[in-house]
């Protein structure tokens, strides 16, 4: 886990200011890899026409995603190892929280 003391003071202020993608005390994974693991582990079922309800980061608020990962359960089973290693799940959590429906970066400009 990344040491919290390594995060500069200015960055803490910014994150708190924005209602922030990462909360105090919350470990941070890789946004880029989280997107990949989310597609690999979750979207296989959670897609339009899939076996479960379609999901994107926008499907929940940051608090709702946090609650889901804090509970650590998927259909009554532990998230890990079924949906990935703890490191991979941290990446997925980071990606989903960073782009949740109430996050500061929910949508890009596109073309």
């Amino acid at each position: 886990m990344r040491s919290l003391r390594l995060i500069p003071l200015g960055l803490w202020a910014l994150l708190l200011l924005l209602g922030a993608s990462v909360q105090a005390g919350e470990a941070k994974g890789s946004d880029t890899k989280g997107k990949f693991f989310f597609k690999k582990s979750c979207k296989a079922c959670h897609m339009d026409g899939g076996s479960a309800k379609a999901l994107t980061p926008l499907s929940k608020t940051q608090a709702q995603w946090r609650k889901f990962f804090d509970a650590g359960k998927h259909k009554g089973e532990a998230l890990s190892p079924k949906l990935g290693t703890p490191a991979q799940l941290l990446d997925i959590k980071t990606f989903l929280i960073n782009h949740a429906s109430d996050s500061p970066q929910p949508e890009t400009c596109g073309g």
């Binding site: 200011l17 924005l18 209602g19 926008l58 608020t61 429906s101 109430d102 500061p104 929910p106 949508e107």
Partner: peptide
């Protein structure tokens, strides 16, 4: 739920104010 901080169409934006 609109994809805003409040989930509503934000005429007044808290996020702008915070920034």
């Amino acid at each position: 739920r609109f994809v805003t901080k409040s989930g509503k169409i934000e005429l007044f934006s808290e996020r702008l104010q915070e920034a």
